[in-house]
């Protein structure tokens, strides 16, 4: 659905995007992570056929971004970094305007706007002056909207024409937790329902981890890491880290016992404290039972044995720092 090969964008002497190669399949979410100014927005703008690549090629929904820009833009829904709404228009007029530009026939357009407004819970609000005591939020001027509401309108604009490719730049920024959750659910559903290819640019790493099938980390215009989250964790943070919590604190010889048990499996003790020991192991299915067995045989009471969660943040920081 999105095929990028050697994509490069230079502005005079500044190379904003440098030789990027990526593929996003239908039904897949790719999270594009990177520091500010890394080239995420430039990449997305090229995929939306707003900017022309300096070198390389990209096909989006089967169309070349450099030579078939109009067709690309018809098939892409792009959520821009800033909602950028027209403050003197009402929400309904604004969406209607973009629906018309997308060529959606009037009845279908109205239906779609209402459906999406309902989905994003843009519901009528109490208004004493309005008929029935309620006023449709969509009929209020966009200048009166909160940041979160404005972001929802921008999202509806992006989804209005039901595009097969979505490019979402910070989709949950400025949203309250409930709305952000709603947007995340929507993205997950969009991916599964219609096999869309979605590129998600975000600084929200838990969100990226929750939604993305693959992560691409971009730094100074170059992709420095690209893989699934577990694979990235394994590659950048080493083997999984296990933690044993013991029933009694400070038991002499426990660390030595664990070290002896795991010595030949490639695992090693990383850290220990009062009543806990941490070790890393390339194969927990072999190491963990062996450790438990050894401890039980020695009469050491084990409360829990669990994997220490390694965050995407650690992966991201490692990737960015390693490539400085």
């Amino acid at each position: 659905m999105i095929e990028i090969e050697g994509l490069t964008k230079a502005f005079d002497t500044l190379v904003a995007v440098d030789d990027i190669t990526l593929t996003v399949h239908p039904g897949e979410v790719l999270a594009l992570l990177g520091p500010n100014g890394a080239g995420k927005t430039t990449t997305v703008r090229m995929l939306a056929a707003i900017l022309k690549p300096t070198a390389g090629r990209a096909r989006v929904a089967g169309y070349d971004v450099a030579t078939q820009g109009d067709a690309v833009r018809r098939n892409v829904g792009m959520l821009t970094e800033a909602p950028g709404l027209y403050s003197r228009m009402s929400g309904r007029e604004y969406l209607d305007f973009f629906g018309q530009l997308r060529g959606i026939p009037t009845p279908e357009r109205q239906k779609r706007i209402n459906e999406l407004a309902e989905w994003f819970r843009i519901t009528p609000v109490a208004d004493q002056k309005a008929a029935g005591g309620y006023k449709d939020v969509l009929d209020r001027r966009l200048g009166e909207y909160s940041k979160g509401m404005a972001q929802k309108i921008a999202l509806i604009r992006t989804l209005l024409h039901d595009p097969p490719v979505l490019l979402l730049d910070e989709p949950t920024s400025a949203m309250d937790p409930a709305s952000a959750r709603l947007v995340r659910d929507t993205i997950a559903q969009l991916r599964n329902d219609a096999h869309r290819a979605i590129v998600l640019c975000t600084h929200n790493l838990p969100e990226a981890e929750a939604l993305a099938d693959r992560i691409a980390i971009i730094r100074q215009g170059r992709i420095v890491e690209q893989d699934t989250t577990p694979a990235l964790k394994a590659r950048l943070l080493g083997p999984p880290l296990m933690e044993i919590r013991l029933a009694q604190p400070s038991q002499n010889g426990v660390v030595a016992l664990i070290e002896r048990t795991i010595a030949n499996s490639g695992a090693r003790v990383q850290d220990a404290g009062d009543g806990w020991v941490r070790y890393s192991t390339p194969d927990p299915t072999v190491t963990n039972p062996a450790v438990l067995q050894a401890l039980t045989a020695s009469g050491v009471a084990v409360v829990t044995l669990s994997e220490v969660a390694q965050s995407l943040e650690a992966v991201y920081l490692r990737a960015v720092e390693e490539n400085v």
């Binding site: 703008r45 939306a48 707003i50 109009d70 067709a71 833009r73 018809r74 892409v76 792009m78 821009t80 970094e81 800033a82 950028g84 709404l85 027209y86 403050s87 973009f98 530009l101 997308r102 060529g103 921008a154 604009r157």
Partner: peptide, 11 residues
């Protein structure tokens, strides 16, 4: 007003 990009992203 940063509304141009969404307009440029249309066909």
């Amino acid at each position: 007003r940063r509304s141009l990009e969404s307009l440029l992203a249309t066909p």
